[in-house]
Design a protein around this nucleic acid. Structure first.
Lengths: 301, 301
DNA sequence: ACCGAACCGAAAATATCTTTCATGCGTGAC
DNA sequence: GTCACGCATGAAAGATATTTTCGGTTCGGT
């Protein structure tokens, strides 16, 4: 009954800060000012009218509305409701635990705690921002695919491999490509009914975009896993799965949190596919487990 | 209509319901209808305009506003904001109810939520169980090492590669080996002052234990990253970093959570090393970032 | 039955939000 | 260096939502 609450606000409430971070790069200066104000003080902004917020940020009503739209709400009115919700949530939940960045002179205990906390944050943000519609469509495509190619270079290449490893274990035909030349030559083989997945945080990695483009033009179902839903890579993507973007700090490159985020998306894809193909996936998983058993020495007790 | 539906929730919700009850006697019939609707379904009402709520309750806008005033708000607008907050709180209150395993017939929304939750758990467990003494010793060894070899096969192989990628970016000499033969032949080259790291969840993977043993016997500082601190692999490990082990379920192989756990350990190692070598690490990170820039297409705007 | 008071909703008045459009600024091409 | 183009931006018009006003209606008391 009240299950569909969050839908009526346009999007999950908790993810606003994450969404601001994700979309900030694609915003204009004025819009960024508005977004920042909103992210910094949800409660305060919820109390303001369009005009008020426009004055506060030194912009115009139109800009405020545009920002609200970009954040996924039909208009400012709805953004405001969401903000009110956020504020209430924030207030009821205990201290937001605003930890500082990792510093050079932090103790190892601090490092461990902060890293764990930040990765947890990343997971929460990703889960909140993931479009299950797109995810479902991607799963459907994967289940039906004759073959699946996954493109990724650098840190994303490892995620690509992780995905293919998993898919192979449940009997799907999947390959990961990190060599851009081989990726393109393989992409040419793809056709309708096949799936191509590009993994790139920035969404601008040419080495990954190129094979996806080729796959796209050959009629394959193309999926982009990226932190920038408006990046070039999405141009050739039938489906876009957005990973979260977190503050990058000197000691903690973006690669770190984007990897966590990408892996969650990949896991979701995998579990989704495993569910749909349960009849074959379950025995396949068991079989691969069995096959590996002899490579393990018996554990000491 | 069920008057007592929302009793079980926290004070904020209860307070509204209580206020409605308290004030009900002093309300006129139409106002009671409005108040009741609001108390029964805050979320639903928050989505409605004055006109909408008036129609829903079969009354007029004026009555709705009057009711809002009676409940202590300046007008309907503010009541609506409060309702949105209430709804959000209510929603978040029921969130921690995800304790069950992922089932075949779970919706994708559930899958995403459960996976994120479980991985968050895994991170917390890992952070709690990590021995910072051992971690510090491992960091010290890495910083001083002439070269570092990392062994891992299967999913752990990707973690091994992740670690080497990171170490390379801050100027350390590191290699990942997933081919057991090559791993052993390379391990022979190691000597005192070098570091060998074995990554294996079960701690029983022969292909990984063997090169670690060789490295150990050649005097290298050996580190085991494993979920079983008493497994065979630790026999040849000077230092043991324990990853957390979570319940394995049919649709969620252990590889999934062990990977999350291993990656956190690896990140901690990396940041630890980066801290200690900050003078050289920071510029090296910046340089590698710079070098990659030209491989990215300019972002769209 | 008549009076008065309070309730109520239709519609006007106001506030708020949204859209449109002209302006100016920056950017890239020539 | 200059020009043309596109895009961000805010002012103001237009649309919608909220608040107020006001007259009709109901109901209890006399």
């Amino acid at each position: 009954m009240t299950q569909d609450v969050k839908e009526s606000f346009g999007s999950p409430v908790g993810s606003l800060a994450a969404k601001v971070r994700t979309l900030a790069p694609s915003m204009t200066r004025s819009m960024q000012r508005v977004a920042e104000a909103v992210a910094n003080d949800p409660a305060g902004c919820a109390a303001l009218t369009v005009t008020g917020l426009a004055e506060l940020t030194g912009t115009s009503e139109a800009t405020v509305v545009r920002t609200a739209r970009l954040l996924g709400y039909p208009g400012y009115r709805d953004l405001r409701l969401a903000l009110a919700g956020l504020a209430a949530q924030q207030q009821s939940g205990r201290a937001p635990a605003i930890t500082t960045d990792i510093a050079v002179d932090d103790s190892l205990d601090d490092v461990v705690a902060k890293l764990a906390y930040e990765e947890q944050q990343t997971l929460a943000d990703t889960a909140a921002g993931l479009d299950t519609g797109q995810l479902g469509a991607a799963v459907t495509a994967l289940v039906a695919a004759r073959r699946t190619d996954v493109y990724g270079v650098g840190a994303s290449g490892l995620v690509a491999q992780d995905l293919t490893q998993k898919l192979l274990r449940i009997g799907l035909i999947a390959h990961a490509h990190s060599d851009p030349h081989l990726a393109v030559t393989n992409a040419v083989q793809l056709r309708s009914g096949d799936v191509a997945i590009a993994i790139t945080h920035s969404g601008t990695t040419g080495d990954v975009i190129e094979p996806l483009r080729v796959a796209f033009e050959h009629g394959a179902t193309t999926v982009a896993v990226t932190g920038r839903p408006d990046a070039p890579v999405t141009q050739y993507a039938d489906l876009v799965l957005t990973t979260s973007t977190s503050r990058e700090t000197e000691l903690r490159p973006a690669a770190m949190s984007s990897r966590t985020s990408q892996l969650l998306v990949v896991d979701c894809l995998f579990v989704g596919v495993a569910q749909r193909t349960y009849e074959t996936a379950a025995p396949a998983l068991a079989a691969s487990y069995e096959a590996l058993a002899h490579r393990h020495r018996s554990a000491s007790r």
